[in-house]
Write a protein that binds this DNA or RNA. Structure first.
Lengths: 116, 116
DNA sequence: AAACTACATTCTTATATAGCGATTCAAAAG
DNA sequence: CTTTTGAATCGCTATATAAGAATGTAGTTT
């Protein structure tokens, strides 16, 4: 029997459920405020209150966004006294954002060059 | 208990504009139907009509989703006679989806193991 | 015990968009 | 020209959700 090449690009079509799960994850990254929270957490752990202050958004809003990120497995939380400390729980988040930023930089520079 | 890694990447906070641009890109990937279209295109070029047939969605809907993917720079199109051929214009799309799928597999297997 | 603190939750409003049908547009054929 | 075909666009409805205000809640202090 032929063994499947590891580099074989022939990918099977994804099921509806898989598509929904993947879309759910990407949706967690599809809001500027959530990206801002992740961006702040990339500098280190923060309490919810600190994120409220530094994000400039309201407390209820930050709490809800953090819930979305937590359900997506991207942010973790641990309670310590009255405060809740948040941290990035999935290093993939950094990679994804890094890739996207890099790609955007390339495109913008390309467009800028086209205008010069 | 691991000591905090010295690999702290110390990234500067992103601007509002950057966050909006990044969110816009992720939003393009945040819908199951668009992921399905991308998944079909991963197998090779398709006309819009073929995508309508294979996706099982309506023509207007597919057309609008393709417009979103095109504006996000993820899908390219070339007209040939009456037909419009679509293709993946940014290999990053494959990487992003691959990463996400891999991550989901890991989590699901982990959870499955936790239940056994 | 009461009062306070840090978050979470609920409720509401405003906005965005997925999906559908109908229409329009553009290229090709008759 | 007219018709046909492939795709884009418009109008519409239903649904999702971001954001703020008010309230609830659990842990802390006094």
């Amino acid at each position: 029997m032929a063994k499947r090449k590891a580099t074989a690009p022939a990918k099977p079509p994804l099921t509806d459920m898989a598509l929904n799960l993947i879309a759910l994850r990407f949706r967690a990254l599809a809001e500027p405020m959530r990206l801002r929270l992740l961006n702040l957490l990339m500098q280190g752990e923060r309490t919810v209150g600190q994120l409220v202050t530094e994000s400039g958004s309201g407390q209820a809003n930050v709490s809800k966004h953090l819930a979305v990120l937590r359900e997506a497995g991207m942010v973790g939380m641990r309670k310590e006294g009255l405060s809740t400390w948040c941290f990035i729980a999935d290093p993939m988040v950094n990679e994804l954002c890094e890739m996207m930023c890099q790609r955007l930089r390339e495109e913008m520079e390309s467009k800028a060059k086209a205008l010069s």
